[in-house]
Design a protein around this nucleic acid. Structure first.
Lengths: 213, 213
DNA sequence: CGCGCCGCTGAGCAAGCGCTTAGCGCCCGG
DNA sequence: CCGGGCGCTAAGCGCTTGCTCAGCGGCGCG
């Protein structure tokens, strides 16, 4: 199997929960197109074409183009929330949990940078109702991360002056990976995760340096 | 003068170098529209309307809508490069220069967040030639920041394992301010600059804590 | 006072947009 | 072997888009 085919298969697996097959192919095609050109520059003909169908077929599975973006955003943000939740609720001290959160969160944004780009940078194209739903998922992700950092500050593991500000910065750092990351670049998603975990532990003034590996 | 009028005046001053007046009003209107809805979702009628003219007037001053974006991008990136250059070439140790660079760079992205949003997140809408020109300005900004961090690493002021990676993260952090910053939010641009300078000095393991103010 | 020029407008063109509809062919239960 | 329904397509509708162009008005100069 070629590299391109492998990538296509991996992208398809990401949307395994979407059925039937035609709907999944449409989601996969839309993510690729939205990430490449942006939501507004992408036409329904382009999405349908990438999925190997006629433009009209799109409307059997989704009411509008915006609903496609909404579905993508929902699934993507739920995945991001689950990643943050797993780290936040894990056993261990704040240092380990923060390192794990940043490592996995940043790595996901690198590995799935096309999906991440869409869900992080095309939000404004959502309708007001859909935006509100997604904004709630984002607030919950923020709250989980803030909880870890607050724990570390309370226990004395971290030295942070401004917990909400630092949380915002950490989240911003991880999210922005989706903007600059390229699969052709010099860094693997694992390396980005490791680098970012290290940088963030320094940002919060964690007392014990983690194993640099 | 009302707050809205004051903001409008401040936005207009930002483009003082653009003449004649009608061309400046168009740039100002385009920045506002592009930042609010994105380049592709903004119509020439919308831009002209905000500038108080008919759609046709736009084409007396700019050949295409894309040229407007190019002009905005060029001026904005040159400003960003100048900010970074001023900090990089200043007297003083790497710690002071890095703190100054991050403080002013992040503050600019907060204060001029509409302009910054356009130049940082609408790049893909540029034509290939124009994109290449802008990409060069961005590389030069990156190189200046990397120089400061490298200096600190060489002199022993900083402890950084991965200079290009850390540079990328610092730049990413500052740039992403444009995405989340809101004038209605709890933080002033000065506060963002101060917070970010502090966080970045920790990221590079600067030995001496700077004056917290 | 009148004339030319220049910034601008009103009207509109071709193209492409999101989305709809009528109908085709294949698959499956009887 | 047939008939109904479902996933899909070809065609195209109404509208908006970026952009054009003929001509108007008012200001400066002679």
């Amino acid at each position: 199997m070629g590299a391109a085919a492998q990538r296509a298969e991996a992208e398809n697996e990401e949307w395994a929960g979407v059925t039937p097959d035609a709907a999944r192919r449409l989601v996969s095609a839309a993510v690729a197109a939205f990430a490449e050109r942006g939501y507004h520059a992408t036409t329904t003909r382009d999405i349908a074409g990438r999925a190997g169908m006629s433009p009209a077929a799109l409307y059997i599975h989704y009411k509008t183009k915006e609903e496609l973006l909404y579905r993508i955003s929902g699934i993507g943000h739920e995945k991001a929330l689950r990643i943050m939740g797993a780290a936040a609720e894990a056993e261990g001290g704040a240092t380990e949990r923060l390192a794990d959160a940043v490592r996995t969160f940043a790595r996901w944004h690198a590995e799935h940078h096309t999906t991440a780009r869409v869900i992080q940078y095309e939000l404004q194209a959502l309708g007001a109702d859909h935006y509100a739903e997604i904004a709630d998922l984002r607030r919950r992700t923020d709250r989980l991360l803030r909880g870890i950092i607050q724990d570390g500050a309370d226990s004395g593991e971290f030295r942070v002056d401004d917990v909400p500000g630092t949380t915002l910065a950490v989240l911003s750092l991880c999210v922005d990976v989706a903007r600059w990351f390229s699969a052709d670049g010099p860094r693997t998603p694992d390396e980005v995760g490791a680098l970012y975990a290290d940088l963030v532990l320094r940002m919060v003034g964690a007392r014990t340096a983690p194993a640099t590996e």
